[in-house]
Design a protein around this nucleic acid. Sequence first.
DNA 1: AAGATCAGCAACCGCCTGACC
DNA 2: TGGTCAGGCGGTTGCTGATCT
Length: 288
Amino acid sequence: MGRVHPCCSEEKKVRKGLWSPEEDERLASHIARFGVSCWSSIPELAGLQRCGKSCRLRWMNYLRPDLKRGRFSQQEEDLIIALHKALGNSWSQIAARLPGRSDNEIKNFWNARLRKKIRQKEASSSASSTAGSKEPAARRNRPNSTENGDDRIKPAPPPVFTPYPFVPPSPRDHVAAAASGASSCDDYSSAAGSFVADPAAAAACAAVHVGYATDRSAAAAESGVTPTPPSMTTSTSACTDDARGSCDDGFLRAMVDDPSFLFGDFYLDSDGGHHGQIMSFWESHAFS
DNA sequence: AAGATCAGCAACCGCCTGACC
DNA sequence: TGGTCAGGCGGTTGCTGATCT
């Protein structure tokens, strides 16, 4: 079997199981003060009876300040599905393209979803003979179930996918927006599956939104009001419904091929009316 | 009210890989 | 060049709360 990590050996008494608030506090405050140089030394330095791996896991999956937590939005779900299609079970790579989500979180979400799908397939395949009478009542009667197989319990209101952080205002944003000649890229159906076939056009569209977002961000900063996701209502340019389908693979491939291309640099809008909108584009990608 | 079932989630486990000696 | 170590990753397990019978 695998080598046992020295820090996890029985020689050192290490705690296992759930982390207490005190342990969280110790770990978080230690990392806040000293950062992370060597995980294996952190337990001792922070006064924790945990192994370094456990500390790392706790930090990466729970304590990291940039984690957003909470239920996955529909946009995130679409992203995960699209990225999983392209990347497979490379959860860390998928997580790198989703802001504020850990690989563990995504993996858990996917596994739960996958399990359900498999069950549903089995249920549907045998439904003709059993008329579905064997499905557990607990699932049959779940509130808020949808008809498309996604029976996650969706609380109301839906979770807010906080659009953060806004791209720092850059003159290039506006220059690029002006140069693109595009006015808007409306009606994205899903984050990864709705870009136009032409990457240049996609970049141009995104450039507009970078400008738009930064304008709003600056205005919000001046007014002291938390910026809200912009709502796009006009529809021009190449980002049309007709362009979908043929564009998905190309755009996705570009994302996958370019490791510097991070979804963390997108804003996703969850105002309900523009499901899966891409609100900005990583400027170094869009303008490089 | 109690037990059964399920989903969601946190954490552990085993393995792999790269850096270092 | 091979061994050791630490970090990282994906798979899996087990706990908890919600829901239903």
